Amino acid sequence: MSTPLYQLKAEFFKTLGHPARIRVLELLSEREHAVAEMLPEVGIEPAHLSQQLAVLRRANLVRTRKEGSAVHYSLTSPQVAELLLVARTILSGVLAGQAELLADLRAAQGEGKPPS
């Protein structure tokens, strides 16, 4: 019996569930990067970055290209960048809604009303 699609989606999102992996994918959404270029941008130890890149490779989200001793990474699909952009749009909407709620609560406190 094959794995249900919802389970595969859950595994996919678990792969995205680490801040370092998200940051790597954001960088690669801009252009191909060598590992050495990513290190200061991601802000983790080289061994840890290597582990996170291995996770993304196993998930087939990134591919490698070797040039001399340097290893360059790129996205396997531009749709990964689109997914990150959609996530940013969703989060912007959520945060905007929270900011409005906070403003309403502060306004109510200023008027002496109990928060609802």
Results as ranks from 00 to 15, higher is better:
residue 78 P to W: 03
residue 73 Y to C: 10
residue 43 G to I: 04
residue 47 A to Q: 07
residue 49 L to T: 01
residue 98 Q to M: 11
residue 87 A to W: 12
residue 58 R to N: 11
residue 30 E to Q: 10
residue 7 Q to T: 10
residue 19 P to A: 11
residue 65 R to C: 07
residue 114 P to D: 00
residue 34 A to L: 05
residue 26 E to M: 05
residue 86 V to K: 13
residue 13 F to Q: 02
residue 62 V to M: 02
residue 100 E to I: 13
residue 96 A to G: 13
residue 101 L to D: 12
residue 12 F to C: 13
residue 2 S to M: 10
residue 18 H to V: 01
residue 111 E to H: 14
residue 43 G to W: 03
residue 9 K to V: 11
residue 65 R to Q: 12
residue 10 A to C: 01
residue 15 T to H: 04
residue 48 H to D: 08
residue 22 I to H: 00
residue 101 L to F: 09
residue 45 E to I: 07
residue 53 L to T: 12
residue 5 L to A: 07
residue 5 L to S: 07
residue 111 E to W: 15
residue 56 L to C: 12
residue 43 G to R: 05
residue 2 S to L: 12
residue 72 H to M: 07
residue 69 S to G: 06
residue 95 L to K: 13
residue 114 P to T: 00
residue 64 T to F: 01
residue 83 L to D: 02
residue 82 E to G: 01
residue 99 A to H: 08
residue 73 Y to G: 04
residue 116 S to T: 13
residue 33 H to Q: 07
residue 45 E to A: 06
residue 31 R to C: 02
residue 8 L to S: 09
residue 93 G to A: 03
residue 36 A to Q: 10
residue 111 E to N: 09
residue 115 P to Q: 01
residue 90 I to Q: 13
residue 110 G to K: 10
residue 30 E to F: 03
residue 38 M to L: 15
residue 109 Q to A: 15
residue 16 L to C: 03
residue 112 G to F: 09
residue 76 T to D: 10
residue 34 A to V: 05
residue 37 E to A: 11
residue 24 V to W: 00
residue 83 L to K: 04
residue 111 E to D: 10
residue 112 G to M: 06
residue 60 N to F: 04
residue 75 L to T: 06
residue 42 V to E: 01
residue 8 L to N: 01
